[in-house]
Design a binder for these strands. Structure first.
Lengths: 225, 225
DNA sequence: GTGGTTTACGGAATACGTAAATATG
DNA sequence: CATATTTACGTATTCCGTAAACCAC
């Protein structure tokens, strides 16, 4: 039994399907299928009901999810404890995937020049998981979007980043120069898939394509440049 | 990180060396060496001080032993929980390695004839680990040696097995027909290595070679045929 | 020299991705 | 027919054992 199988299994259980879990894990669906198959063989039980549109946990699977999460937690805890002994200090940095890449590379290169003896480890995800990692001590710092209600002792404004809205020419917003995020609340939008921008062709003459989404939740007010 | 690495690491830490751990794990020394090397690389710390006769834990290694045992326990607990859901019932049987193989195979074949739908899983080790497995619920039954003080409700005498003592012709015991185990207390003896009998050549004309040892502890009174 | 660990190397198992096939609604 | 999962297959990695080298006492 390997940890990757544990992680695969938990992801499929939480996302409710092989395909969507594969996207978030950045692996192919067949890899997940084979991994779970091997896990089921080792455990001697069937973990998912694959019939129909989505993968549903069997009773055995439901039981094993709890166990799997405990194993994962134990492993994470062990990794955190061992960090104090590592010769070369590692700064673990969580990055919200909606940040512009150039901003990150700029910061990283300046950091590496100033602190060459410190190793950098970057992990990116959506804002909720970043906050979770921060609480659990899995990352030391987070590059994220400030919402204005942060404690100034633990949050620092590093830079501002302008967001642009893409609408068709016929859209009511097309004539406006600035839009507050509050006005967008409830509007349908194109969802970004796995931190990649969906490329939009002809019918829309896009000004630019940059929309924070947070996985289908409605956008709320945040800082705009 | 795989579980085999965890098990390798704990075994080396407990036995105090790569070679002796390899014997008990039934793998080669280089396999252990590579496994630990990979683990150290992944963790970013050195786990053992390899200088000299034996492998000694570094401070990081001492810390990680505790974590590794927790991970192993969590994994075992998960396996125990999943057993209730397994379609084909599995009877896990622990066998003391000093038992005669023919006695075990005889019992096993009769069991399989009578209960063909039950899968059998056998694990063998010394008596202390067997008892530990029994307490932890890792095995359902134990084939072991009765010491006479067992609760008759949970222990059953299945058969008796005669033990023989091998001594040189000049030894005081050589003229005796029977020896009680109490008389052997404190006597030097040839230690069995990894459940295999040490083959003894010329100078000793052995009557037979069968001595219960329990890993270097002094033998105590038990049932003799 | 002896006991113990590491390196080198060949073979077997496996994890991954791409592409095709199968099943479900 | 569309979506979702499973097979099939080629490739790269890795795990294991044997044999040889290295290292400390």
């Amino acid at each position: 039994m390997d940890l990757y199988q544990i992680n695969y299994f938990i992801a499929i259980a939480e996302y409710g399907g092989f395909s969507i879990a594969a996207e978030h894990l950045n692996v192919s669906q067949p890899s997940l299928s084979n991994g779970i198959k091997k896990l089921e063989k080792e455990l001697g039980v069937v973990l998912f009901e694959r019939g129909g549109r989505r993968a549903l946990l069997t009773p055995a699977g439901q039981s094993f999810v709890e166990q799997a999460k405990k194993i994962r937690e134990q492993y994470r805890s062990a990794l955190n404890k061992i960090r104090d002994f590592q010769a070369r200090p590692i700064l673990k940095l969580g990055v919200v995937c909606s940040l512009r890449i150039s901003s990150i590379t700029n910061l990283v290169s300046r950091f590496r020049l100033q602190y060459p003896h410190i190793a950098l480890e970057l992990r990116d995800s959506h804002i909720d998981e970043i906050n979770y990692w921060l609480e659990e001590g899995e990352i030391d710092l987070a590059l994220t979007v400030l919402r204005g209600n942060e404690n100034p002792k633990i949050a620092l404004n590093l830079f501002q980043q302008s967001l642009r809205l893409a609408v068709p020419e016929t859209h009511p917003f097309a004539q406006r120069d600035t839009i507050s995020l509050a006005e967008l609340d409830g509007q349908p939008y194109i969802k970004r898939i796995n931190c990649e921008f969906v490329t939009v062709h002809s019918p829309l003459r896009a000004r630019s394509l940059k929309l924070p989404t947070q996985h289908g939740k409605r956008v709320s007010k945040t800082d705009m440049g």
